[in-house]
């Protein structure tokens, strides 16, 4: 049954074939939702700030809460110097949040379940950390990997571990978001599929039994909304913490 295939929702297809100069720039269903997320975030922030009311309405309140939420996050993790990256962190947070939340609608494509997308965003963050760290502190920034107060004998080993842990950052950052969204949507689909399978089984006992996966699907939907927010938050706060390493390399 194609209707209950939990992987089917991740299938990509090209809506518009666009080979430009040897680069396949085709618009896929994932690309459509990237556009939707961009438009959604832009519309949300622009409409919410259009009235410029001293006493904010609902939409403006939401926009201001989002703004302050991310601004506080950046300030508390990366300090006031980190505020130069505030637009980036805000864009990342809102982009991922909208992508995840839109993905909760049936038949909508969740492009954060694509490893290449999340990994690209993670690489953007890590390249920025390395680039800004070296731009700001020169090659002294590499001292980040040499922990102070470590016995000289252990320095090479500890440094190696530090370098390794730094390299795993983009991987864990990208994979965490990807895996959470993928697994969540698969789980949802699997349990929702059980309802269909049970109802289609035709035996008398399968109808009341179908309530169990239904209840689970409802609970999982609530959980997935939480995960959608939480993963956007985790991505944003880890971005702040990594950027803090670029701004203040001292441990």
């Amino acid at each position: 049954m194609a209707g209950t295939d939990p992987i089917h929702q991740f299938h990509l297809n090209k809506i518009v074939d666009l080979p430009i100069g040897g680069i396949d720039a085709s618009l896929t269903n994932s690309g459509v939702f990237m556009i939707a997320a961009t438009l959604g975030v832009t519309a949300f922030v622009m409409l919410g700030s259009s009235r410029k009311a001293l006493v904010p309405g609902r939409l403006q309140s939401m926009v201001e809460i989002s703004y302050n939420f991310v601004a506080d996050m950046v300030k508390s993790s990366a300090g006031t110097e980190g505020m130069r990256f505030f637009p980036l962190v805000f864009s990342l947070f809102m982009f991922i949040l909208f992508a995840n939340m839109m993905g909760m609608f049936p038949y909508f494509y969740t492009f954060t379940s694509q490893l290449v997308v999340t990994f690209a965003l993670a690489m953007l963050v890590i390249s920025l950390v390395i680039g800004y760290g070296i731009y700001k502190h020169g090659f002294k920034w590499l001292k980040l990997f040499v922990l102070p107060g470590v016995p000289i004998v252990l320095v090479p080993l500890v440094t190696l571990i530090e370098v390794f842990s730094f390299i795993t950052r983009p991987v864990s950052l990208g994979v965490r978001l990807f895996a959470n969204m993928l697994a969540g949507h698969i789980a949802l689909k699997v349990f929702a599929g059980f309802i269909v399978l049970l109802l289609g089984a035709g035996a008398w006992w399968s109808y009341p039994l179908a309530i169990l996966p239904l209840l689970l699907t409802i609970a999982l939907t609530a959980l997935e909304f939480l995960v959608s927010f939480l993963q956007a938050y985790v991505f944003a706060i880890l971005t702040c913490i990594y950027l803090n390493d670029a701004i203040h390399p001292g441990h």
Binding site: L12, K14, L18, I23, D24, A25, S26, L27, T28, S30, G31, M34, I35, A37, T38, F111, Q114, V116, V117, A120, L121
Partner: peptide
């Protein structure tokens, strides 16, 4: 689908 997604990710 890596390249098309990356292209649109960069654009959007």
């Amino acid at each position: 689908y890596f390249v098309p997604q990356l292209v649109w990710l960069v654009l959007t």
